[in-house]
Simulated assay, not measured.
Amino acid sequence: MFRTKSGRRRGPAFALLAAASLVLALGGCSADTVTPGDARGKAGTDDKAGTAAGGVDCARAKCIALTFDAGPGKDTPHLLDVLKEKKVPATFFLLGKKHVDRYPEVVKRIADEGHEVANHTWTHQVLTDLDAAEVRDELSRTQDAIAKITGRKPTLMRPPQGRTDDTVSDVSRDLGLAQVLWSVTAKDYSTTDTALIRQRVLEQAHADGIILLHDIYDGTVPAVPGIIDELKRQGYTFVTVPQLLAPGKAEPGVVYRPEKDD
């Protein structure tokens, strides 16, 4: 598992700005992570088992998962309009404080429109800087807040900055949460240049990939239509993270991360 160097805690603002910058450190595949292909393989290879929910078989189709972190925010309703128009499902890793609690109607809409609602902690603290009780509080508060709105607790979480360790995994397992990392990032925390965000995603996109974007930054949502259109032109099928793993199911505590193409 990934371990942070023991250091002082950083506040939510610092963590948000740094969230995507560590993707290079997460680029290689570790024996402690499971790829989407591995998840599917463990579930079986017959035709019936090979089809994900929604009729997509990612063992055969060129699948990619679009994910958004740290929302919802003011631009999320427009993003949902775009996804509805393009008929694209996404996975939303929601932040609790000042997001889930500020935009409950948007959280409900995300769930009602068939997207996967997932957990991105309560205050975006780096979980490897916390003790077990603090990790549990960060995750369980968001679990409860989402369940109050949607009637269902998430089964997926994304640790801020992708930082996880045995303590985070143990607490996640107890709470029924699998951990989902990524293989494609636009580093949209660092730019409002929509064209650049689009370019970065398209340059890194690959089959079985998981794209990390944030629906809270000004340049990101305007980039999404162009990303979707071009990847569809290239033959990609957009799926949620559970669909990407199907017929496998995300196992609590396990870290899922795609292999990046060379």
Rank of each mutant, 00 (worst) to 15 (best):
V82D: 08
G162A: 01
K48P: 00
A111K: 09
W122K: 08
T76H: 10
D208W: 00
V34H: 04
I211W: 09
R60S: 05
D165C: 03
I228W: 12
Y189D: 11
A223V: 02
G235C: 03
L79S: 12
V23N: 09
T191F: 15
A145V: 11
A205G: 10
D38E: 15
Q243C: 07
P252F: 05
L175Q: 08
T45G: 12
G7M: 04
Q179R: 07
V184H: 13
M157D: 05
T237F: 01
T121R: 04
A49E: 08
T121P: 14
P72S: 00
V171P: 09
P225H: 07
D262G: 11
F238K: 07
I146F: 00
T150H: 07
G7E: 11
K86W: 06
V171Y: 09
S183Q: 05
L130W: 03
L16F: 12
R136Q: 12
T142N: 12
G37K: 15
S169E: 11
V254D: 07
L95N: 15
T240C: 08
G54T: 06
V221T: 03
E138I: 11
S140W: 10
A118P: 10
T220S: 07
G248D: 02
A19M: 09
L212N: 10
P104V: 13
F68N: 07
I227Y: 01
G41D: 15
T51Q: 14
A90F: 10
C58V: 04
T45C: 06
H115P: 03
P159Y: 04
Q204F: 06
A43L: 03
P154I: 06
V254Y: 08
Q199V: 01
G176M: 08
D261F: 03
V239T: 06
R152G: 03
L83M: 13
A65V: 06
D170K: 15
I64P: 00
R8S: 14
T4S: 13
T155V: 02
G162I: 05
H115G: 08
Y189R: 10
L196Y: 05
G176Q: 10
R158L: 07
K187R: 05
V106A: 02
T237E: 10
F68C: 00
L94R: 10
P104R: 14
D47V: 09
K232A: 07
G96H: 15
L244D: 07
G219L: 05
Y103N: 09
T194S: 14
V88Q: 11
A65N: 04
R109Y: 12
V126F: 11
T237V: 13
A65P: 02
A53K: 12
D166W: 00
D218S: 07
Q234T: 02
V184S: 11
S172W: 05
F2E: 03
V254F: 04
L24S: 10
R173G: 09
H124R: 08
T142M: 04
L177G: 07
R10L: 13
K249Y: 04
L202S: 05
E85C: 00
A118E: 00
P104M: 08
G11R: 14
